[in-house]
């Protein structure tokens, strides 16, 4: 049973260490930046917007998102 406080840095019963949480936060930031880069104006009834397939939106953004999602795995498994 885990009854000790989880604020001790080297608590072996701690679920996710400081470093782990840090990595996961970085991953979340990456994902958010990815989604921001993916957004933008779309095509309308008047005109087709070729920007919806710009490098920023379909190359850089998804790679950042994927990197973020994979980094979460690293964050969970990271062991000092």
């Amino acid at each position: 049973m885990n009854t000790t406080s989880n604020n001790t840095p080297n608590d072996p019963l701690r679920l996710l260490g400081k470093r782990n949480v840090f990595i996961i936060i970085i991953a979340c930031v990456l994902i958010l930046i990815g989604y921001c880069l993916m957004s933008g104006a779309g095509s309308t009834e008047e005109a087709f917007n070729p920007e919806i397939f710009s490098t920023r939106r379909i190359v850089v953004a998804p790679m950042l998102c994927l990197a973020g999602y994979l980094l979460v795995i690293v964050g969970i498994l990271w062991r000092e």
Partner: peptide
Amino acid sequence: KTSLACLLMILMGYSSYGVIFIRANAN
């Protein structure tokens, strides 16, 4: 704690639907 962490992780994976949402808005 574990259950909450698991729920957060499930939602994290589910958040991938952001791709669908954002791209749908690009028409």
